[in-house]
């Protein structure tokens, strides 16, 4: 419970994260369903960031960053899977080329959603990489 100093330390029965886990899930569901990339990316980053922080605060991990990177990787995998469903064959060039469908006119909606989830995953991984540095300088 006491791995990271924060709200949870001072107030035994408080945590900043649950509200943001919930908000993150709501925003990401909205973004992904309606295919609005900024909303789904923002929502998913908030969602996995808050999960990693809550898990770390609860003492299941020492630091949130590796879990955050893992969740980011999971999103990248899910996003790729969703996009690849739109490939006409499982040949390597088809699988790589499928992402172009997200930028075609009109764009393939499923690929757009896949890309948004991948971008969110990459953002999560980047956050996990720069986070420790930021946290050190901040404290």
């Amino acid at each position: 419970m006491d791995a990271q100093p924060g709200l949870d330390d001072q107030y035994r029965r408080s945590s900043s994260w649950p509200l943001f886990v919930a908000l993150g899930l709501v925003i990401s569901e909205l973004g992904v369903l309606f295919g609005v990339i900024p909303i789904s990316v923002g929502g998913l980053v908030l969602f996995i960031g808050a999960i990693a922080a809550a898990v770390s605060e609860a003492g299941y991990t020492d630091r949130p960053w590796r879990l955050l990177a893992g969740l980011g990787g999971l999103l990248v995998g899910v996003g790729v899977l969703i996009a690849v469903t739109q490939a006409s064959a499982l040949a390597p060039e088809e699988v790589v080329g499928v992402f172009a469908k997200g930028f075609a006119q009109p764009p393939n909606g499923v690929v757009v959603r896949g890309i948004s989830i991948i971008v969110a995953g990459i953002a999560g991984i980047v956050l996990a990489l720069v986070g420790p540095q930021l946290a050190t300088t901040h404290r």
């Binding site: 994260w17 649950p18 509200l19 919930a22 908000l23 909205l30 809550a54």
Partner: peptide
């Protein structure tokens, strides 16, 4: 799981709004 308890509650107000 106190935090999951709070998450479960905080999903409800946005759910209602939707």
């Amino acid at each position: 799981f106190p935090r999951i308890n709070a998450i479960a509650f905080w999903l409800l107000p946005p759910a209602a709004l939707l």
